[in-house]
Simulated scan of single mutants.
Amino acid sequence: MAFGQPKNRRHQDVAQKKEAMKGAVRTHGPGLAKAILLTGLTCALVWGSIELRHWALTSPFFLLKETSFSGLQRAHAGELLKLSGLTVGQNLWSLDVAALERAMDTHPWVRDVKVRRHFPSSVSVEVSEHVPAALAVLSDLYLLDEDAEPFKRLQPGDGLDLVLITGMEREAYLSDESRTRERLREALAVLRAYAATQPGKRDRLSEVRVVPEGMVLVLADGTEVLLGQGETDAKLKRLARVRDELKSRGLAADVIHLENRARPGWVAVKLSSPVSERTGASAQ
């Protein structure tokens, strides 16, 4: 009997341990099973994504076959493709769209560009070009867009007949770009206002000269109009009336003064010399 008691006690300990293990399994088993399942699913997803990525980057299904362009007027598709390095046969998934846009944006005519991938095998390029509004004389001749940005040197093949904006220096533009751009914007505003009030070809504007006192207009016939600052629309209306009056009298002006700030309504005109005086011939 003395030896039987420890043996029974051992059986009891074993039974208690088994029961404790069963309780632990009942309590923690479902959670552990979920954790194992989730781990397995995660490993499967990671492996699957790696295999899927490898397939997408190597499959001929996603090779570039066609690139379409919209918005091109001055820039050419071939030039933009060369700048970007975009070629048929590249994998669409491997394209760096932002890098393609930056490369195409270096073309002087391109103002903004948007590249889009169209799976499985094409790319579209939407281009917004600079619209030249005038020629700015900044040491060299530069094309000026509607936001007063000198975006390109004038080239012989550009074939543009635009109003000149003079009186600004390249050094001033480089040293104080914001101020120079502001003056150029003012000149463009005057140019647009003139075009709205003087549609006639005879009265075509040839030059807008930026001076400390304001703006000077040079018309196609050589007439200089000292516009000064402010009240542009009112001054241009007075200019139209003066030009009509001179025309009705058979006269022409060398200089028309509209810059009298003390008397804004006054117009002073320096008439052109008669033909006999300009050429030295005697009047008939």
Rank of each mutant, 00 (worst) to 15 (best):
E66H: 13
S94H: 05
V88E: 10
L83G: 03
L95M: 07
F69V: 09
F69L: 06
G78L: 06
L95D: 07
L92W: 02
F69S: 05
L72W: 04
W93H: 12
L63R: 14
L64D: 09
G71R: 11
W93V: 00
G71F: 14
L83D: 08
L83N: 07
N91F: 10
Q73F: 13
Q73E: 15
T87M: 09
L92N: 00
E66Q: 14
L92F: 00
H76F: 04
G78I: 07
A77G: 15
S94G: 02
L83M: 08
L72F: 08
L63K: 14
A75F: 02
L80W: 04
R74A: 12
L63D: 14
L80R: 03
W93L: 05
G85E: 07
L72S: 06
R74C: 06
T87Q: 14
L86E: 01
N91R: 10
G89I: 06
A75K: 00
W93I: 01
G71T: 13
K65R: 14
S84G: 05
L63A: 15
T87G: 05
A77W: 04
S68C: 10
L83Q: 09
L81E: 13
L81G: 06
S94L: 04
F69R: 04
Q73S: 15
L83W: 00
K82N: 11
G89A: 08
